[in-house]
Design a protein around this nucleic acid. Structure first.
Length: 136
DNA sequence: CTTCTAACA
DNA sequence: TGTTAGCA
């Protein structure tokens, strides 16, 4: 079995994930409702998270602190899933949690916008671009 | 006891 | 987001 399989293996209950991510069950479920994560389910309908899910939740928490909203995060994560490109972006977002300057954030977002177009994804409209920045 | 969905004195 | 109700 390779690393990819291991990371995507459904192993943890929401309780474990709560402790691992410092997030409430409410938040975790809410993020799932917004398609930021897609944990597996047991036959009893209980969520089973993979190592990747936990990692993703950590990134989500991070991005949320930086002021991005669900839409913005979803785009970033979607591109990340398409592989490559965001390798550096994700590292930057994950390794520089508490000190990401506005310029860096803008660069990351601009990078994502460019990639989105490169991948034939519908380009964002003005309104959506504005929504990239959350006004909590 | 833990998790789930739905809903809001 | 919190919190609670009523199930499984």
């Amino acid at each position: 079995m390779n690393d990819k399989d291991r990371r995507s293996m459904p192993l943890f209950s929401i309780g474990i994930v709560m402790k691992l991510t410092e997030l409430t069950a409410r938040q975790i479920r809410y993020y799932e409702a917004n398609d930021l994560i897609a944990p597996e389910r047991t036959k009893g309908n209980q969520r089973l998270f993979s190592f990747n899910d936990v990692d993703r939740l950590l990134q989500i928490k991070d991005l949320l602190d930086k002021g991005l909203n669900m839409a913005g995060i979803k785009l970033l994560l979607d591109e990340e899933e398409k592989e490559m490109v965001t390798e550096e972006v994700s590292k930057k977002a994950k390794k520089a949690p508490a000190n990401l300057s506005d310029k860096e954030l803008r660069d990351i977002l601009k990078n994502e916008l460019n990639e989105a177009g490169r991948y034939g994804k519908a380009s964002m409209r003005q309104g959506e671009l504005a929504r990239f920045f959350a006004k909590r």
